[in-house]
C-alpha cells in the first residue's frame, strides 16, 4: 500500500528546545540536482538574542559540573552520533558528497567527540601552573571557562566542521550559540537532536541556521557574549567582527584549520576559550625548613 512520506521539519535549537525562528522566515536548500532538500529556518537577530539568554542561563550549571562529568557527557554525544550514523551519512550525501567521503566525515566527527571527551578533565593540569614568587605566597594559575561564545561554523562541511568548532568550546566548560553552514545545514539540526538526547543540559549548545551576513554584527557586538570563534574565510567579516568585539573586550578567534586532518584537533583550541585565574595564597614560613603549604 502506498504510504505518505513523512518529511522532517528542520527547526532551530535554543535552550534544549526546537522552536521555529521567531521571524517565521525560511530559505530553501537544494542538492546539486536542484531538488529541494529542506526549508531551513532563516534565523533572525532576535533568535540569536534568545539563544544568548538561554546560553547564559546554562553557563553556571555547565561550568560548575565536574570536569569528569563533562567528559562523560561528551562521550555520550559520540554514542548518540554513532547510533544516527546512517542518517548523517545520508544527509551528507544528499548535500553533495560521495558515500566514501560521507562515511569518512561522520567517522572522523564521532572520533573527534571521543578525543575532546578525553581532554575534558586533562587540559586543566596541562595549562595550570604553580608560579615562583618572591614572597610568602603559594601562587598558582588555573584556566576557567570564559562564558558565552558565538561560533560561526565552517561553510564547506555539514557535520565535521561544526563538531570540530563546538567541542573544544564546550569541553572547556563554556556555552555557545553556533551558526551552522548556510549551504549545508542539514546535519546541524540532526546534531542538535543528538545533543538533546545526550544529557547535555539545555542551552549549553544552541544551533541557528541562516545567513551570516545578517547576523555577524550582532554575534560580535552582543555585550553578554564573551568570545567569538569564526571559522570561515571572509576578510571583510573578520575585520568587522574583530572591531565590534572590542566593545566589551571579547576574545575573537579566527580558526582556519583543515578539519579533516587530525592535526586540527588539539587542546590549544580549548585553551583559546579559557581565562587564566591567578591566586595568591598566603603561606606560613616555618624557620629554615622551607615553606609550609
Amino acid at each position: 500500500m502506498a504510504r505518505l512520506s513523512i518529511q522532517k521539519t528542520y527547526k532551530i535549537f535554543i535552550g534544549g528546545q526546537f522552536p521555529r525562528t521567531e521571524s517565521g522566515r525560511f530559505y530553501p536548500v537544494y542538492n546539486s540536482g536542484k531538488e529541494l532538500l529542506a526549508n531551513m529556518c532563516l534565523s533572525s537577530r532576535k533568535d540569536f538574542r534568545n539563544a544568548v539568554v538561554a546560553a547564559r542561563k546554562a553557563f553556571g550549571g555547565w561550568s560548575s559540573k565536574s570536569a569528569f562529568n563533562r567528559g562523560q557527557i561528551l562521550y555520550r554525544i559520540a554514542e548518540m552520533m554513532e547510533g544516527r550514523k546512517h542518517q548523517f551519512i545520508a544527509e551528507i550525501m544528499s548535500q553533495g558528497s560521495t558515500q566514501k567521503q560521507a562515511e569518512q566525515e561522520v567517522q572522523t566527527a564521532i572520533d573527534r567527540c571521543v578525543y575532546y571527551c578525553g581532554w575534558c578533565d586533562k587540559y586543566q593540569q596541562l595549562f595550570s601552573a604553580v608560579n615562583p614568587v618572591a614572597s610568602a605566597h603559594f601562587n598558582f594559575s588555573v584556566p576557567e571557562p570564559t562564558g558565552v561564545v558565538s561560533i560561526i561554523a565552517p561553510e564547506n562541511t555539514s557535520l565535521l566542521g561544526l563538531v570540530s568548532v563546538i567541542l573544544p568550546v564546550i569541553a572547556g566548560g563554556n556555552v555557545c550559540v553556533v551558526l551552522a553552514s548556510e549551504s549545508k545545514p542539514l546535519c546541524s539540526i540532526t546534531l542538535a537532536e543528538v545533543l538533546a538526547t545526550s544529557d547535555l543540559p539545555g542551552g549549553v549548545v544552541n544551533v541557528l541556521t541562516g545567513q551570516l551576513k545578517e547576523l555577524h554584527t550582532h554575534m560580535a557586538s552582543h555585550m553578554d557574549v564573551n568570545a567569538v570563534v569564526y571559522a570561515r574565510e571572509n576578510r571583510t567579516e573578520i575585520k568587522a567582527m574583530a572591531e565590534l568585539c572590542s566593545l566589551n573586550v571579547k576574545r575573537f578567534f579566527h580558526w582556519n584549520h583543515d578539519w579533516k586532518l587530525s592535526s586540527s584537533e588539539n587542546p590549544y583550541l580549548i585553551l583559546d576559550l579559557q581565562e587564566i585565574k591567578t591566586t595568591w595564597h598566603p603561606i606560613e614560613k616555618i624557620g629554615a625548613s622551607g615553606s609550609g603549604y
Binding site: 557586538s221 555585550m223 566593545l247
Partner: peptide
C-alpha cells in the same frame, strides 16, 4: 548603544 546589552552592567 545599538548592541544587545548585558546584565553585567
Amino acid at each position: 548603544t545599538g548592541a544587545y546589552y548585558s546584565s553585567d552592567y
